[in-house]
Write a protein that binds this DNA or RNA. Sequence first.
DNA 1: ATAGGCTGTCGAAGCGCTTCGACACCCCCT
DNA 2: AGGGGGTGTCGAAGCGCTTCGACAGCCTAT
Lengths: 337, 337
Amino acid sequence: MVTLAEVAQHAGVSASTVSYVLSGKRSISANTRQRVERSIRELGYHPNAGARALASSRSNIIALMIPLRTDIYVPVMMEIAIAVATTARTHGYDVLLLTGEEGPDAVRRVAGSGLADGMILMDVELDDERLPLLRETDQPAVLIGMPADTTGLTCVDLDFKATGALCAEHLAQRGHRDIAVIGEAPAVYERHTGFAERTLDGVRTRARELGLRLLHRPCEGGYDAMALTLARILDERPGTTGFVVQNESALEPLLALLRQRGRAVPEDVSVVAVCPEQVAVQASVRLTSVAIPAQEMGRRAVEQLVAKLDGRGGDEVVLLAPELTVRASSGPAPAQP
Amino acid sequence: MVTLAEVAQHAGVSASTVSYVLSGKRSISANTRQRVERSIRELGYHPNAGARALASSRSNIIALMIPLRTDIYVPVMMEIAIAVATTARTHGYDVLLLTGEEGPDAVRRVAGSGLADGMILMDVELDDERLPLLRETDQPAVLIGMPADTTGLTCVDLDFKATGALCAEHLAQRGHRDIAVIGEAPAVYERHTGFAERTLDGVRTRARELGLRLLHRPCEGGYDAMALTLARILDERPGTTGFVVQNESALEPLLALLRQRGRAVPEDVSVVAVCPEQVAVQASVRLTSVAIPAQEMGRRAVEQLVAKLDGRGGDEVVLLAPELTVRASSGPAPAQP
DNA sequence: ATAGGCTGTCGAAGCGCTTCGACACCCCCT
DNA sequence: AGGGGGTGTCGAAGCGCTTCGACAGCCTAT
């Protein structure tokens, strides 16, 4: 293992000079800098992370807390995580992966041990139990998602309320009068994960303003659950012609079931999804959808956190504006019989 | 920030004693131990990770390298990652998330800086460019997947060859004579990711032994690609009655397309999938499948790595035995017309 | 009764880096 | 010519922890 001291000796300078070349915190003559850089290359030097962390009280690590839940659409989580990791690297940070397993204690452990300089929390609940700890230890942190009380917190999220509104508008515009929201699994609502409720709120508010009749049904993923849910919806409101779907694993089942019942998409029924682009494009009917900008969310979260760690920028709620892309699953409402 | 020294003072012992209480590397009287533990609790002490790493040359961190590819089924990756993270915690390790972005350099960086004590690599190619580095730096490492040359390496993977064989056997047993493998995207084969080829090899070998006629077609995910692929298969071998599907995002499309063509599953056609349990159960037809034991793979990988770090256990290839679960998508071949 | 071996605790020496203050040295200004 | 202000470099003091050797005190075996 090559050390700073060895590099210094090899280059014929003192250790501190090498350190300053590396950090750029003091000016170094071009000549010296080059000699040092050459020595670093020749010896294959890599600064020891532990020593660096100890001396500078900075680990250059960001902790990313991902919950363990399986009722949330996993690819989105993954995409966010990957975006976080790559963005972090561009800012000189590595990412530590924490799972929900350890619960709120992880916050204490990470904050206390100086393992990470800051953290990013995913799948934030409205009244998340990690938040008090965050505030109390005043860990630099960024949430992906939005709790009920955001004072003193930095959050990044898709504007789900606007998303819901956008979906309602789209359907209204095409002449649909009776619409249904097929939501996430009941557990998601019970847990008060904000995004589901906010989307619903958005649809509901806008639907009311536009004079739409609205039905909302949570739905576990899968074929069977969707069959039940759909049956119930069409039972109660046979005239339903517009669907807003927020549960990715209910999408294909819904399309298959509609087909089976002889309701053609988009001729008889329109479907608007809230899902990642890829899902919308790969579905058996190319779906009109509001994309979940997973990459963007991950990227922004890191940027906010890095800004905080650099002492720039304060608490802020970043809501990404939703964009609805019209594809093949939505069209004008059928003429009233 | 509470330090060891403060704990020592509070408990009225020396710093080294506290350290030994923490590490258990020397015997400590019950009395002293309790006093120290009490002080630790009262002061809310957490050992500083950097200092610890510096002094002990152990970071208690495992690096997990996940590629960025999108043509691989993401939920499996995620499940493995989560399993790795939680298992690591039970052994006192944290997990550092590295993406493919940085490429092989990440190996050098992590090894050189002592950031992690060892690494776990996912999505290993047959001739992976990271392997020479791994051997050269002799980083303790475990691969999830199998390269062409495993000498000096520890690998954990599902036995995909046996998986393929199992699928072929199952179909043969039900009387199918013409079967087709719907594989991963062409890119996956070009990249020489072993698992796809090994599965195919398994099917092919066993099919030959059992006198089955076999067709293999790679397939991008999605509805359109699957439509094309299926058309081509049925064109060439209209009598095909058994399908082995390894590409998760081709599954629903295939089922829908078969339905559309009037071929009932499982009455006319049988489908065997290689996919996570959840996918098999949630599909529109409950699928006969060989499960991909993602959790188990992650867990085993960590255990192998920890054993290595503890100086126990050497290089070893752990192949998990596949299990085929019969569900509703496979049945006896239809009588020959 | 005494040598020898345990047990439990302590002090001190680092681990490899960052950072602060000190200080040559050179250049420019008056 | 001499003082003032940059530049560029160095030495040394830690950062908080682990770990080695030392040693006091006690118990056992002779």
